[in-house]
Nucleic acid binder design. Structure first.
Lengths: 345, 345
DNA sequence: CTGAAAGCGCTTACAG
DNA sequence: CTGAAAGCGCTTACAG
């Protein structure tokens, strides 16, 4: 071989290290470190020589090595359900912005609603020694995170509470939001209202159902069990459930949709019906106001969920020995037309 | 102080290391490493002792340290415009899935369309020594990445080409897509068609405008400069541009919207008009089919952009000395009604 | 103002 | 089958 490669050329491509810079500038390693990190105690002349060597070599500090020595990685991990779900976009961005304000980067990934994948991902992030973890739970048993939390990984759950461990959680007021949305329909004159929600093992689904039942009870209205349907949010199931509630001798005159996916399918079903049916959906979505009628929704503030959770995470990291808390964010009813359709007789 | 803390307790919380495991199991460090990594050459009995120590101590390998020694971080960086933009959701997820298939994690962040922030973020990722970088450019000068690419960071640009450097780029056929969309309007009888697009310094904006002009030229139609408007995609500007084109003695009878944000604003403007105006938009969006009329769009496959780009990245990492390539993905015209409205006379 | 030594938690290359 | 030594690229703690 005509050219022998220096050992360092086999690693990270062939990046120069502080050692290389030190050799070229004719100074000690520590002096390079001082210049790179802007520490005081270097004469202008020395600094200039080091800076020239840095530029000539194209040196960039290896933060990965730095992190090992410093103990903190300046990295936040985020486990969410699906990176491509628009609902989580603002949450994702909010986590990024708070992390950025603290000089931290964001590693994120999708659980795909699979508890095993959630666990695998969360633990991979712990192995990378993220300083903190924001988790939107897919599973309902998070005891696997207990050793990590004990070891100092600041962990905050969002959107749904952690399962079988005591930890911070930030969520929207699903119960109150659903109760208010259903009360709005009742105030509009509806007495037979259907509820279509997500799987019953999902915390938000049962909370919203509870809100629906509370609103009905508040108004002294009975709930026929055929008006309630929990399960997959796949379009086929949701439209079947909707059609079933809307047919028969005593059809519902209004629907409450338990989340954004259900709402969208409900809109499609209702658009194909001859008579108008009222609809209120949990979760706002883009263009809800452009539809005819506009869709009345119980909106949660996804960005606030992410912001509050990540703020909490950094508070923990700051060492204030906080006990685990449950932080609930209010929802907001946005009336746009679909929820104000009167009952058809 | 009643309790003195071991040095290791001050770092990463108080995590046990391989050294701690080795001490507890009464074996050498290397033996622990073998067990943790499933390497052969350990007797079942030794392995059992080590495993017990691991479990008792709650040991989890520090991948951050491992990475330093191994030279590759098994991490991909993604710089996009906005983590909360629904258009990038599927792209983000696709990058994650390909990375995951290669055992890599994903660090991502938003440039917020700010070239300085793009640079800062991309270089921070390089400092963490990501193995590869997927960049959706905000700026138009990427020479700052040249040393990194030379040093071995596999870099692929997506959606827009890199500026002033020669690098891989994966993009949609903006020119062809726009040309086809405008040709569709012309085939429907339109002769006066407006084009509203993004800032002229954005590559896709000028490509789409070029497609518009080509389609008009193909049909022998003149283009009045008042029919063309490039600039911010803020609703105020877009609606002003649309209203201007739609008024006067010779108003346009159809609009071509250069991207999803423009399309949405155009829909709002058109909904407020007395007469129907045809609309074709570049980029598909959720619920486009639920609007009345449904919105005809030139759709690009955002997930495919991410997938192809990340595949390319790992091909590079595999060491096949590929020359930089430009990979163009086809678009698809989806007719839903708004683009099939005939010209009003 | 400057730098040599030790160490972060692992893996590599080697010797027993 | 097993482990001591060296090293990845930095920072820390210290001495000059």
């Amino acid at each position: 071989m005509p050219h022998s490669r220096r050992p360092s050329e086999t690693r990270y491509g062939n990046r120069p290290t502080m050692k290389d810079v030190a050799a070229r500038a004719g100074v000690g390693l520590k002096t390079v470190s001082r210049v790179v990190n802007g520490e005081p105690g270097v004469t202008p002349d020395t600094e200039k020589r080091v800076q020239e060597a840095i530029d000539a070599l194209g040196f960039r500090r290896n933060d990965s090595a730095r992190v090992l020595r410093k103990g903190r990685t300046a990295t936040v991990g985020l486990v969410l359900e699906d990176l491509s779900d628009p609902f989580y976009g603002p949450l994702n961005r909010a986590v990024e912005e708070v992390a950025r304000a603290h000089g931290a980067l964001l590693i994120n990934g999708s659980s795909a609603e699979d508890p095993d994948r959630e666990r695998e991902l969360a633990l991979a992030l712990c192995a990378r020694r993220v300083d903190g973890l924001v988790v939107i739970p897919a599973g309902d048993d998070h005891r696997y995170l207990e050793p990590e939390i004990r070891a100092g990984v600041a962990t905050v759950f969002v959107d749904r509470p952690a399962g079988r461990i005591d930890a911070d959680v930030v969520l929207s007021d699903s119960f109150g939001g659903a109760r208010g949305g259903v009360a709005h329909l009742i105030a509009g004159g509806h007495r037979r209202i259907g509820f279509i929600g997500d799987h019953p093992h999902i915390h938000t689904a049962t909370e919203r159902l509870r809100g629906y039942r509370a609103a009905m009870a508040d108004a002294g209205l009975p709930v026929a069990e055929s008006w309630v349907s929990l399960g997959a949010t796949a379009p086929e199931r949701v439209s079947a459930a909707a059609r079933s509630m809307l047919s028969g001798p005593e059809p519902v005159t209004a629907l409450f949709a338990g989340n954004n996916r259900v709402t969208v399918t409900a809109v499609r079903v209702l658009a194909s019906l001859p008579r108008p049916v009222a609809l209120v959906g949990f979760d706002d979505f883009e263009l809800a106001d452009l539809l005819r009628p506009g869709i009345t929704v119980v909106a949660q503030d996804a960005a606030a969920l992410g912001r509050v959770a990540t703020d909490r995470l950094f508070q923990r990291l700051a060492g204030t020995g906080l006990p685990p808390a449950r932080i609930e964010l209010p929802t907001r009813l946005i009336t746009r037309g679909s929820g104000e359709i009167p009952p058809s007789s």
